[in-house]
Design a protein around this nucleic acid. Structure first.
Lengths: 250, 250
DNA sequence: CGAAGTTTTGAGGACCTTCAAAAGTTGTGG
DNA sequence: CCACAACTTTTGAAGGTCCTCAAAACTTCG
């Protein structure tokens, strides 16, 4: 199977895990014509205010979505890993209100809007699955707003690490306790709305309190229970429930 | 026309302004069986973690969506006014990851999920319109994350006021410069992620700088240009473009 | 091995918080 | 229509969190 087909089927597997999708729809989905593009670290997949034509499915690497202020302030609003369809919303909102950039060399499958919208129109289950995917996105944004708005520095970082571990585990890239977080502390600062210096000090505190360990870019969660308590992490917002609930009432 | 029909048609008008919807779909939409409920100030329309059966279309009043921390911290993630379908996302995500509450006496039209999903399935244009509506939601969440993450206290409040004025104007409740903001400073604090005291001082600063005026709950934007500059307010994220773009390529 | 980037440290100060109380506003019942 | 209670806004003061600037230590990589 080609890398593109592999990425498509991985995304399809994610959607299917939430709600069943008929064979005809999956066949049509797999038949889409896409191209694969590789971006270097810190290259933009999409610039802010850009008028796009296709959306990005991550085949490999780590990317973030961000917004910037005129004074240079940057806020990362989400991270995305393998199997994530990053900007499905741009199918309907053609002018990007945020940028997307790579934090590692990243393989991106570009899927034309037309194809997505066509599928959504002709296969209601797919349309609903796409919709659901953007809803999970929105739920994560809400949690991030809470994160930067109402948690202390330490708590914010703890929360971000837990979310990352959870999502990496969901795609089999981590056992839930140890993972590679390939971002600098400056990037982390942009994600949690703090200064790099304070991120550094908060990390030191998390380490010296025996909650996490770090060696280079690999993070190990040492005391998960305490970390969860500190961050007040409740995975509800990641909506892992999809499948069960949606099968109940079609 | 009954109050319920009125609210439904107002929402439909909003959707139609973004993209055309065929007559059959609008007829089916208007035929939905809904009930109208009134909530007192500070009553929850939906509690956090509640398992809901219907979504809320606002007929009158102001409501907010919020998340809370175990330590009591509360973060308002959005405000909603007349004509807003507050929790369309709960059609697919049955367990609410956030609460919804009234800030004034509020009239709420309850629309059963089944009806919405049925319409979305049989009328692709409506399905797409619902999807789009939740995408605008998500865009606003992103901007709020930027707001609390990267703006100073004054800037945050300035931004919130401008967003509010914009949205009130969009539904004809304000001329763009003067409007009623029926929330306490404590609520405002929860929306911008600050303490009530600092909200008070930031408001004083905005007033004494000649940017706004307030009398009770009515806010007047005195120097819009300066306020926009201060807040770095760009209305792109509110995605007013809907209509034009979506007509181009169906 | 040197250059560039990243993490760490130090120090001073700004922003924002907490606590507490006073002043002002709103609503209700007599 | 006033009186009183409850709430909201405003003020003061002290202190913590977090920021900025700046430089040193450590990594990474060509």
């Amino acid at each position: 199977m080609s890398p593109i087909k592999l990425a498509l089927s991985r995304y399809l597997a994610k959607l299917t895990a939430r709600a069943p999708i008929p064979a005809a729809a999956t066949t049509a989905f797999m038949a889409m014509q896409c191209e694969s593009v590789v971006f270097d670290t810190y290259r933009d997949l999409v610039r802010e205010d850009e008028h796009t034509q296709s959306c990005c499915l991550i085949g490999a690497g780590l990317v973030s979505r961000y917004k910037t202020l005129r004074n240079g302030g940057r806020q990362i609003v989400s991270f995305h890993i393998v199997g994530d369809m990053v900007d499905l919303q741009s199918c309907l909102m053609r002018v990007a209100d945020h940028g997307i950039r790579a934090h590692t060399p990243a393989t991106v499958i570009r899927i034309p809007f037309g194809d997505i919208l066509h599928l959504a129109e002709h296969y209601p289950e797919l349309g609903r699955a796409f919709w659901f995917d953007t809803l999970v996105d929105a739920a994560i944004f809400r949690e991030w707003t809470l994160n930067v708005g109402r948690r202390t520095g330490r708590e914010r970082i703890a929360h971000l690490l837990l979310e990352f571990a959870y999502r990496m585990k969901a795609v089999g890239l981590c056992d839930g306790i140890e993972f590679v977080l390939p971002v600098t502390q400056a990037d982390l600062a942009d994600a949690v709305g703090m200064s790099p210096v304070h991120v550094n000090r908060s990390l030191q505190w998390l380490r010296s309190s025996g909650l996490i360990r770090t060696q280079g870019k690999v993070v190990t969660i040492v005391d998960r229970a305490e970390l969860v308590a500190l961050a007040d992490f409740q995975e509800t917002y990641l909506h892992p429930e999809g499948r069960r609930r949606m099968e109940v009432d079609a």
